[in-house]
Amino acid sequence: MKNSKSVVFKRQQYILKALKESKDVQVDDLAQQLKVSPTTIRRDLQIFEEKSIVNRFHGGARLLEGTLKEDPPLDTLSPKNISQKNAIAKYAADLIEDGDTIFMNSSSTTLLLLKYIKNKRVIIVTNNGSAVGTEKDPRVELILTGGEVYERKQSMVGEFALHTLSKITADKAFIGVGGISVKGGITTSVLQETAVNEMMLKRCQGPCFVLATTSKIGREHNFLSGSINKITTIITGKDADHDELLRLKEQGLEIIELDTLADAADS
């Protein structure tokens, strides 16, 4: 369908890639490359301006410095950061009960759940393509949403993924984030993943957990996945922004702060 979310997401991602590569883009050039009208491109750029990603000028737009930040791959993270992720995932895995159906999004922290779910019959529904090659307990049944593959993260996005999720009700949801704050909500660096995260939160009938290393607390990424009233609990480390955690608690969220180095050492 011409105006489907999938088409819009792909077009906007193309524009974002062009902005990252050249900093400035021209409306007419993008319209020609994408075979759409200049009005469509201007509308996309207006959306990006409202999200404080670009400054528009006559005939084009310029990327604002410091935007479109991306999280580094897991194998480039510091030992401390990796320890945090493992400790958070280990704690979260203990919250999963035998017989649960859970949603797990595409973050590297939620992927580590597969390492720690033991001796439980669990159905995991995920858009994380990397889950296929990750070792897991044989009692864990893995269901992939399918969809278009976003190459950098091997995540599955688009209308097919959303359709799959719309037919499933989960007992719990585990969502990794690019950032979370009272002001900015739940945010991510990948535009296409916002709709998937939103659908997971919508289709979960039980608690929704955000798994966030300390650097994600109080941080705002470019694209909104949902407001904080969609989640029940944040699991993070003890060194997270204390003031922001207080603000999140005041909104009714349960905050679990882990001694991540000690917890990871026990794993």
Rank of each mutant, 00 (worst) to 15 (best):
G176H: 04
E148P: 00
V157F: 08
S166Y: 13
V182L: 15
A161P: 01
Y150M: 08
I186W: 04
G178L: 06
G184R: 09
K136S: 10
K153M: 01
G176Q: 12
K167Y: 01
K136M: 08
L142R: 03
S155T: 12
I180M: 08
L144N: 03
S155R: 01
R152P: 04
A173L: 14
T187R: 15
S130F: 10
G185I: 12
A173G: 14
K167F: 08
R139P: 01
P138V: 08
D137V: 09
T134R: 10
V177F: 10
E148V: 03
V190P: 01
A173K: 03
F174R: 03
I175P: 09
G147L: 10
I143K: 15
I168K: 01
V132R: 09
G158Y: 06
E151C: 08
D137C: 06
V177P: 06
G147N: 08
G184N: 09
I186Y: 13
K153T: 13
E159H: 05
Q154I: 12
I186R: 04
G185V: 05
V132N: 07
V140G: 10
M156K: 07
A131C: 12
G179R: 12
V177A: 05
F160G: 02
F174H: 05
K172S: 02
A161V: 03
A161D: 05
